[in-house]
């Protein structure tokens, strides 16, 4: 029993040493390397002002009440029914992508931006006018290298720069 235990101890140590010396590295060196996501990744949402037909389906399907129909100030005229357009509230958005999938004119699109944080609560609310200006971009101190994750049968994941 004691012999067997000793062998097992040695085996455990040897395995640890094997990986320590084997250069088995999985780490993505964020923010120097930034991973490119596959197509269809459900990141922050982009809005096309011109193709939107203001049907409100996105607001209807939103599970978190993050997508809302805001009164569009530039289009609404006084005395008439206000024109409403979708705006998004990232304080609640859960990135399920239902709004994108239900949009009948493809006016809402996924982007691959998802690594964003904010200093204040208010700047996370995107009414239509702000929503059309595009998604917030993360700030990097220097231009990052874009890499793609390649699945590998020996190493698990390795990273390749995207041209």
């Amino acid at each position: 029993m004691a012999v067997e235990r000793t062998i097992r101890h040695i085996k455990a140590l040897a395995t640890g040493a094997k990986y320590m010396l084997g250069g088995h590295r999985l780490t993505l060196m964020y923010p120097d390397d930034v991973q490119e996501f596959p197509d269809g990744y459900r990141g922050m949402i982009e809005y096309d002002w011109n193709t939107c037909i203001k049907c409100g389906l996105c607001a209807m399907v939103c599970p978190a009440d993050a997508m809302k129909m805001y009164v569009s100030k530039e289009e609404s005229e006084e005395g008439k029914r206000p024109v409403r357009r979708p705006g998004i509230n990232y304080t609640r958005c859960i990135f399920c992508g239902f709004c994108v999938d239900i949009c009948p004119t493809n006016s809402l699109k996924f982007t691959k931006v998802h690594d964003v944080a904010f200093y204040t609560f208010e700047e996370q609310i995107f009414p239509p006018e702000k929503f059309r200006e595009g998604v917030p971009k993360p700030q990097y101190d220097k231009k990052p290298r874009r890499v793609r994750a390649i699945l590998d049968e020996r190493r698990g994941i390795r990273y390749e720069p995207v041209e």
């Binding site: 269809g40 389906l57 209807m60 399907v61 239902f98 999938d101 239900i102 949009c103 009948p104």
Partner: peptide, 9 residues
């Protein structure tokens, strides 16, 4: 990639 029919809402 599926687009949801309006009935899903």
């Amino acid at each position: 990639r599926i687009k949801f029919p309006g009935v899903f809402a």
